[in-house]
């Protein structure tokens, strides 16, 4: 399923957070949003997942505008994992994942055998079988994130939206989560839109990146075309050296120092 955003404008009160955003994620692509703090990345993912309403512009999923899709149907097509998730719940992994079936249930459609199978499959796909009956509290950060991703998978979405899925995680867990996302993208063909903080992660795991700066798209394209010295200086204000990693066939950079004004 493809996502298309055109002419998007979002305000908080009188403050313009996003203006004239055009973005596209094709079926089966992994698209990452990068940009400094306050550039509007989170606002953009929140808006395309209908957590925020735009003042202007259009968001469509496979040609249908977001407002024409009923709330529950949208939740069957698009799964969202916000950055802030409540920790205040004493749930087992299995319970949490079963909530992913919510958009498929309804009046006269109770949780049945088929739903249970889907929940089990979602747990299996994220490698969480052994934690199925464990309480969410007892899990490590990485396991917890995998459990949330399981829940999203139980929605059987065509698009997965993740807001900083690796924040607060150790490097090995960060890898674990991103490898999982890539694998799900490849095996299930789910379109992925995610906010990433680490630009090297964005290089390695994305088909396409959108660079945001002060609420506008500064540039977009394949990571190898977009992430370069000029962009790092203009958007992030750092001098960096760019390298190519032949093993993973992707670009990476090592930050040098903070760029001087007008340098």
């Amino acid at each position: 399923m493809e996502l298309r955003v055109s002419g998007l404008e979002v305000l908080y009160g009188n403050k313009i957070i996003l203006k004239n955003i055009h973005m596209e994620a094709k079926e089966g692509e992994i698209v990452s949003l990068i940009g400094p703090n306050g550039s509007g990345k989170s606002t953009l993912v929140k808006t395309v997942s209908r957590l925020l309403r735009p003042q202007a512009g259009e968001i469509s999923y496979s040609g249908r505008t977001i407002n024409s899709i009923p709330t529950k149907e949208l939740a069957r097509l698009v799964a969202v994992l916000p950055q802030e998730k409540s920790l205040n719940v004493d749930l087992t992994v299995e319970q949490l994942v079963s909530y992913g079936r919510h958009p498929h249930l309804g009046f006269g459609k109770r949780f049945g055998k088929r739903d249970r199978e889907i929940v089990m499959e979602a747990i299996r796909l994220t490698g969480m079988e052994e934690y199925r009956e464990k309480s969410m509290h007892s899990l490590s950060g990485g396991e917890r994130q995998r459990a949330w991703i399981s829940m999203a998978l139980a929605q059987q979405p065509r698009v997965l939206i993740l807001d900083e899925p690796t924040t607060y995680l150790d490097i090995s867990y960060q890898m674990e989560v991103l490898e999982l996302v890539e694998e799900l993208n490849k095996s299930l063909g789910i379109t992925v839109l995610m906010v990433l903080h680490d630009l090297n992660h964005a290089c390695r795991y994305s088909d396409k990146v959108y660079v945001l700066k002060k609420g506008t798209v500064h540039g977009h394209g394949a990571p190898g075309d977009v992430i370069d010295r000029t962009m790092l200086k203009e958007v992030f204000g750092i001098d960096a050296r760019i390298y190519e990693d032949e093993v993973n066939n992707c670009r990476f950079f090592i930050p040098g120092r903070i760029a001087k004004e007008g340098a």
Partner: peptide, 20 residues
């Protein structure tokens, strides 16, 4: 009960799961 359980996950997660 089912709705309250989901609401406990936070407004954003609940909205993402298709709850108004």
């Amino acid at each position: 009960p089912g709705r309250l359980n989901i609401l406990l996950l936070g407004d954003d997660v609940a909205t993402g799961l298709g709850m108004r």
